[in-house]
Design a protein around this nucleic acid. Sequence first.
DNA 1: TACTATTTAATTTTT
DNA 2: TTAAATAGTA
Length: 724
Amino acid sequence: MDVTAILESLNDAQRQAVTAPMKPLLVIAGAGSGKTRVLTHRAAWLIDVDGVSPQSLLAVTFTNKAASEMRGRIEGLLQMPVNHLWIGTFHGLAHRLLRRHWAEAGLPQNFQIIDSDDQLRLIKRLLKGLGLDDSHWVPKEIQYFINAQKDEGLRPKHLDDEGDPNRRQFISLYQGYQEVCDRGGLVDFAELLLRTHELWRDNAELLSHYQRRFQHLLVDEFQDTNAIQYAWLRMLAGKDGIPFVVGDDDQSIYRWRGARVEHIHQFQKDFPGASVIKLEQNYRSTATILNAANAVIANNESRIGKNLWTEGAEGEPIKIYSAYNERDEADFVVARLRDWSDQGNPRADAAVLYRSNAQSRVLEEALINAGLPYRVYGGLRFFERAEIKDALAYLRLISNRDDDSSFERIVNRPTRGIGARSIEEIRSYARAELCSLWRAAGAVASGRFSGRRASSVAAFLNLIRKLAEQTSGLDLADKVDHVIHASGLVEFFKKEKGERGETRVENLEELVSAARSFKPDPAEDMSDLDAFLSHAALEAGEGQAEAWEDCVQLMTMHSAKGLEFPLVFMCGMEDGLFPHQRSLADPNGLEEERRLCYVGITRAKQYLYISYAEQRRLHGMDSFSQPSRFIAEVPSEFVQEIRPRVQVSRPMTTGSRSAGRKTGATHPGAELGIRLGQRVRHGKFGDGVILNCEGQGAHARVEVNFETAGTKWLVLNYANLDLM
DNA sequence: TACTATTTAATTTTT
DNA sequence: TTAAATAGTA
């Protein structure tokens, strides 16, 4: 066996981790320290050198992308395909287990997975059925509550209302929600994990089977595990399992979605023999960027502590640009991108990062004006599009008549005269009889309804039956093809005017090709249709079609995690935006924002620009803000301010020749008669007095104490002040 | 039922 | 500002 191939490219710490003895191991891997490399090489090492069967390896990631990359890299190292090696997301693996043991898990064989959108609709329906006012019982909050409980591994029966009637209601809604899911054979994302956990907990034999089989558990992004995921791992590891977990406490940015960094500490308690290896050598960024990142994250109290270092060059200083407003900021960024591109660099090597999605708009406008191609990450994914979900709902109903979620989605789409009234009747019948909507519809159509309404409902039932019949012998793609046409969906969207309808039809056709190229795992005992539906729920697909033009990359700092770019811009670095207003109150929140900032900085390999706007249009209002506190945390030795403003404030004593006239966008500054103590009026803030001035020409700013709005710095160019 | 007016709220995201 | 959800109207 060729050991060198696996080890040659590794440094000491990495090698130590890869070749570690077969005991629990925690690897704290700093940004850019070769985390994935260690994980994949460990797998290869175990298989190739230690002679561990691929069968006894389980590798867990958080995203499908990470999972498939890991498989690719392991197979690359071993130079052979590794079948029987389980690599997947927590959810993907849990799903696999539930499909194998559906009976023991108490599920129908054809259970369906619902995504968060389906879940929310289901909750809304539930509320309506109970006659609860959804402005008081906010569906989103209930959804959040249910998922949070499930993420903690808690069932309704484990919850105590603590004498709080509000909480009691939430618990009872959780209960009700679960009953609806169970009745319809529906499993939400959190349920996949919780069910599997319970399956093992209640089936000693099954558990020990998997414990024996999966001796080695490799976990990526360990800091992102939530309670149920960690419990899942711990249970599977049992006494003899050998977990190999890799994570970085400083990159934990998903607390709000249940992730608990504390598991890193817990791990060492739960696996007393565990060793810890830190990977601190960074191969990504220049020394300047790395040191800046280190300095920022050092302000966090709660961290394990590590110091990243590099052998690389010092590199360029971090450029900080103070923009007047968001357009100025965008223009600045785009001008730099132009230069970058004009110098012959790939545009795809440049990323523009921001805290929240809404910030992309101004940037996009500026990019369009400059004619620079770009790609925005995030947004609707393929399988989340409405028309796709409609088509899938037909398919799901064909597979499982009791899927109420799908029933409601398509019962009147395309419209077939089954309005709110009819649906309400069906619902109430179903509630009374505790049966699915499908059954209720059947009963209602043949009994309670008369004339047109009965025939509309009957027509729908017949349509589904007919679709099931007509497609029963067909292969998956033909099934999908038949359904999108025979259901009337294609026709329906064709009628929708404009490009929108066209895209929808195209997407439906794309669904057929997705089905055609879908290759179900022959090892799984499911129909092709069920496999495809699960795949659609579990892997929502790419956001944008992969038009592989060389594009500037726009994304949130969150979605940048795990990526790297030679040139990075961090925009909107203002207090209130980043750190976000809603995180400021709580110190935990602030620390998480700081970690996010750390993630942002460490994405940059060579050049990093940080920019902020003094004035920004937010929610249609101009707001003024201070530079992000994180900027001040970057030591000045690593920083170069671009176009520094005149620092010295000096009073301007020019006479008020133009008093009474608007200080329009033409020629602001001293000539306009701005002087200390001058009374001015602002469109939004009202009346005030000038306290201070600084800068000149287009850069001139004044500090105004408004009677009602407080003290603000305004750029004369934009403020549109009236002298009084 | 479909279209239009009005109201409301506004991080981050994967499965 | 703007997008989405809701209410009201044809």
